[in-house]
């Protein structure tokens, strides 16, 4: 069923693609930063500190998206006993953790001038911190356990517990009173963010997604080289 995931064919892509993704990333990031820092208007209430949002929100989205993908890949890998899925998940995780930390730090920097505090133990922020801890646990597990069978079981366990947290992060602002504001962007109803601010937000999201793709390709390429060096042409 998963013939297209044969390492030999993928290796051709992962060894060549990073260059092009890098170029694309730099172009999209430059457009995004120009839009976010210079051309987009200031907010009526928070004036220029709104610009932090263009980094904060995409970073949070990407880190949530990557954790969901990691969990999904681990579970599918576990059900079909396909080790390649675990390697894809392993290669995705680091950039997810980086964006998770970026979201927490930029949120904190934004919180000080806006809310008047660096940190609040409200449901959204705390659940985001828990997600970061799950990322760290996941990545550490890969480093600790040498035994292949063992590491697959442990990382799957971590992701299956961690994935329960993801809907909590998403809906925490709707379910409970939180200091964090509810979502501004809704797919089904009208968004409460002006279109002039929506554009840089989407470009920055694309830039961050490209960055994750770039890191993923490089990481995954390394994993494939490791397998090659072991003299195995299959997983």
């Amino acid at each position: 069923m998963f013939k297209i995931f044969e390492p030999g064919k993928i290796f051709l892509i992962t060894s060549k693609a990073p260059k092009y993704v890098m170029i694309l990333f730099i172009i999209v990031l430059s457009i995004g930063l120009l839009e976010a820092l210079i051309f987009s208007p200031e907010d009526y209430k928070q004036s220029h500190s709104v610009r932090i949002m263009y980094v904060h929100v995409p970073a949070a989205w990407i880190s949530l998206g990557i954790f969901s993908s990691v969990a999904f890949l681990s579970l599918v890998g576990y059900i079909f006993k396909n080790k390649n899925f675990f390697l894809i998940a392993k290669s995705l995780a680091p950039s997810g953790l980086v964006f998770n930390i970026i979201a927490l730090v930029t949120g904190s920097i934004w919180g000080k001038p806006t809310w008047g505090t660096w940190w609040a133990w409200d449901a959204r922020i705390t659940s985001m911190l828990i997600l970061a801890l799950f990322y760290v646990m996941y990545l550490i597990a890969w480093r600790i356990y040498e035994d292949k069978e063992q590491v697959l079981k442990i990382t799957t366990t971590i992701t299956i517990i961690g994935i329960v947290n993801v809907p909590i992060i998403k809906y925490s602002v709707d379910w409970w009173n939180t200091l964090h504001q509810p979502a501004s962007i809704n797919i089904l109803s009208k968004s409460s963010i002006h279109s002039s601010m929506m554009f840089p937000l989407l470009v920055m999201t694309a830039a961050f997604a490209l960055f994750s793709l770039l890191i993923f390709l490089m990481k995954y390429n390394t994993e494939l080289i490791k397998i090659k060096n072991k003299g195995l042409d299959r997983l």
Binding site: E42, D43, Y44, K45, M53, W115, G116, L179, Q181, H194
Partner: peptide
């Protein structure tokens, strides 16, 4: 003993406001 401002989910330029 402490006051925090809560920001709402509306983002728009001053002219639009």
């Amino acid at each position: 003993s402490k006051i925090l401002a809560k920001h709402d989910e509306n983002y728009m330029p001053p002219e639009v406001k």
